Computed example of a mutant assay.
Amino acid sequence: MDVLDVLIIGAGPIGLACGIEAKKAGLTYVIVEKGCLVNSLYHYPQNMTFFSTSEKLEIGGVPFVSISPKPGRAEALEYYRRVTQKFELQVKLFETVESVKKNQHYYEIQTSKNHYQSRNIIISSGFYDLPNTMDIPGESLAKVAHYYQDPHFYAMQQVLVVGASNSSVDAALETYRKGAQVTMVVRAPEISQRVKYWVRPDIINRIKEGSIKAYFNSSLLAIRPDEVDIQTPDGLVTITNDFVLALTGYKPNFKLLQNFGIKLSDDAKRLPEHHPETMETNEKGIYLAGVVCGGMDTHLWFIENSREHAVKIINHIKTKQPMINV
């Protein structure tokens, strides 16, 4: 079996960028992805608009032409698919990494479909696959979703949205405009300042006029088939309910990182150890790229400011002494 120069885990925008740089450098590589191409973007809400402008989402020097300055989900899916085809990237989809073993000179990686040997590994697995759970009674009911895609499903239903971030606000506004009776439960005293600037005034005004009910400084305590319990500053409130959108954020696959021997910080952020100039972790030959670098601080890295990780990593792989001459 040939030993690869690089195995890249994750076929999101940054993983693809790493593949492009590896190919330009003449390195042998494979990108493995447990889902579809740009899997996280595929699972974004259908009407989602990026915060970034299209030029800041570009990879590989390929222009991203969109109808509006800030593209939507469908445009991004089409762009990254076309980029993948343009560079003829070696992408293996629906292939999950199951184990890794470090030999003296290279790594052995077992996936659900293949076995690979590689001198270096780039982990660009994102954070969107594992939701932060509330760990409350009833969270496992079928009426509860940690992902939101299309508002029509919730038309004329009583919907509870947990959270006040971009995804929560988008879900609340879109389902409300499809005829849902929407209630929001927000731990903070106000809607997050990180909400897109053209959307935040909309949700604030809908709450002020009473079109959307919001409980601030509150938390969801329990979920039952036909109702939910909310702890508010004024006491316990029980309301009837059909669906719960628990958009409480997401986290990286820390188990995967630890299986690779990567050290995590002891604080709540659980930052994976890596060198900021090379992106190499405490495990020599293993690199991090993209939002996974931020641990629980998922607002630290985005596509636009982590595209440079690909260049840093491949430059370091090119210039360092290889683990072995095979």
Results as ranks from 00 to 15, higher is better:
residue 2 D to L: 03
residue 3 V to C: 00
residue 4 L to N: 00
residue 7 L to E: 01
residue 9 I to H: 04
residue 10 G to E: 04
residue 14 I to W: 05
residue 18 C to V: 11
residue 21 E to P: 05
residue 27 L to R: 08
residue 28 T to K: 11
residue 31 I to F: 01
residue 33 E to H: 11
residue 33 E to N: 09
residue 34 K to G: 08
residue 36 C to P: 10
residue 39 N to G: 09
residue 43 H to Q: 10
residue 44 Y to N: 01
residue 46 Q to Y: 15
residue 46 Q to A: 14
residue 51 F to R: 12
residue 54 S to V: 06
residue 62 V to W: 03
residue 66 S to C: 04
residue 66 S to Q: 06
residue 70 K to W: 09
residue 71 P to K: 04
residue 72 G to E: 06
residue 75 E to K: 02
residue 79 Y to Q: 02
residue 94 F to H: 14
residue 95 E to N: 11
residue 95 E to I: 09
residue 96 T to Y: 10
residue 97 V to N: 02
residue 101 K to Y: 14
residue 101 K to T: 15
residue 117 Q to L: 09
residue 117 Q to S: 10
residue 122 I to S: 01
residue 124 S to W: 07
residue 135 D to T: 14
residue 136 I to N: 05
residue 145 A to C: 10
residue 153 F to S: 07
residue 153 F to A: 10
residue 154 Y to P: 02
residue 155 A to L: 01
residue 156 M to T: 10
residue 158 Q to H: 13
residue 159 V to G: 02
residue 165 S to Y: 12
residue 169 V to D: 01
residue 172 A to C: 01
residue 175 T to W: 08
residue 175 T to D: 07
residue 176 Y to D: 11
residue 177 R to E: 15
residue 177 R to V: 04
residue 180 A to I: 03
residue 182 V to P: 07
residue 191 I to P: 01
residue 199 V to T: 12
residue 201 P to A: 03
residue 204 I to L: 14
residue 211 S to Q: 13
residue 211 S to V: 10
residue 212 I to A: 01
residue 213 K to L: 13
residue 214 A to K: 07
residue 215 Y to I: 05
residue 220 L to M: 10
residue 222 A to G: 04
residue 223 I to S: 03
residue 224 R to W: 08
residue 224 R to I: 01
residue 230 I to F: 07
residue 231 Q to D: 11
residue 231 Q to K: 15
residue 231 Q to L: 14
residue 236 L to G: 09
residue 238 T to G: 06
residue 241 N to L: 12
residue 245 L to I: 08
residue 248 T to N: 14
residue 249 G to E: 03
residue 250 Y to I: 09
residue 253 N to K: 04
residue 254 F to A: 05
residue 255 K to N: 14
residue 258 Q to F: 02
residue 258 Q to S: 10
residue 259 N to G: 12
residue 264 L to D: 02
residue 268 A to V: 12
residue 268 A to W: 11
residue 269 K to Y: 13
residue 272 P to E: 05
residue 273 E to H: 12
residue 278 T to I: 11
residue 281 T to N: 01
residue 282 N to C: 06
residue 283 E to I: 15
residue 284 K to N: 08
residue 290 G to L: 03
residue 291 V to R: 12
residue 292 V to K: 02
residue 293 C to K: 15
residue 293 C to Y: 02
residue 293 C to R: 15
residue 294 G to Y: 04
residue 295 G to I: 03
residue 299 H to P: 04
residue 301 W to Y: 15
residue 301 W to M: 09
residue 303 I to P: 00
residue 310 A to L: 04
residue 313 I to S: 06
residue 318 K to S: 08
residue 323 M to V: 02
